[in-house]
Design a protein around this nucleic acid. Sequence first.
DNA 1: AATTAATACTTGCATCCGGAAGCAGTTCGG
DNA 2: CCGAACTGCTTCCGGATGCAAGTATTAATT
Lengths: 151, 151
Amino acid sequence: MSTDDPALPALLRLFRAQAYLESRLSPELGSVHGLALNELLFLLQIARAPLQRLRRVDLAQRLHTSQSTITRMALPLEKSGLVKREADPRDARVAYVTLTRTGRTRINEAEATFRRMADDVFRDRWSEKDIAQLSSLLGRFTAALPGDIAE
Amino acid sequence: MSTDDPALPALLRLFRAQAYLESRLSPELGSVHGLALNELLFLLQIARAPLQRLRRVDLAQRLHTSQSTITRMALPLEKSGLVKREADPRDARVAYVTLTRTGRTRINEAEATFRRMADDVFRDRWSEKDIAQLSSLLGRFTAALPGDIAE
DNA sequence: AATTAATACTTGCATCCGGAAGCAGTTCGG
DNA sequence: CCGAACTGCTTCCGGATGCAAGTATTAATT
């Protein structure tokens, strides 16, 4: 067998990079704004949505997680007033998740913090071109799926 | 502020790609060899280690997880006979994790399966050059850390 | 129109995980 | 030497997550 097939190493490095970055960024992010990384991505999806609101199913699809996780993640965010539930007049099944004014403020602050942290990650050894190329390559995986919130 | 800073989008896409790939690969991998993705990476680290054995601390560091997680992951793997505990004659604190013969067989099979799955992921729209470049860029994050098991 | 299927969401259950605390063994500093 | 600090590992506890089952509502089929 040929051992120079680059597909497996690429995947291994992707998982490894993610684990590294999450363990590096998560604690700081949580201590600054009281938001877990998953909650940041949760709120960011809503903030980037056309009407700043999303059905729970769509949120689950965009975050590649289960519906039950969305239900449970939404609860504390509602309690802390960052998010609120909104009904659909045409379909009584759906419950939109929308940002409150407080939520919009908080996600903007958290995003700014996160942006600074992202800059730090790439500060050494990375040119703008490298970063752009990495971003472009990674974007291919989910290019066809809804919810690409990278500006 | 400039909104074309590529660092934040790159990180968002990385997390997104990982979530997508894990949700895509994990079920199939588990159903084929009865191994979770984390367990595959666990075993792969040992298989790639110089003496095919690793201290639990080192394993935790390489997988970017906690020591307690290593303890708990090792248990079922010992029970199913893929892995066994080995003492260090010089330091009674350490408990190496080593592969059994069965474990070596299983990880080889699982790796082959995983390699095929990785090939599938990149089958469309990716040239070998693209994959190699992605792999190289991702490798920068953890280049200085031990445990880069990408061949 | 009524039955059936499909969709959106929630809840129960089992599993997985990290951090703090605890224990055993080793190293350091006097 | 001997106690204090450190290291490796495990256990306990709270929190997060996926899957399957349950409920409510809408759509499809006949």
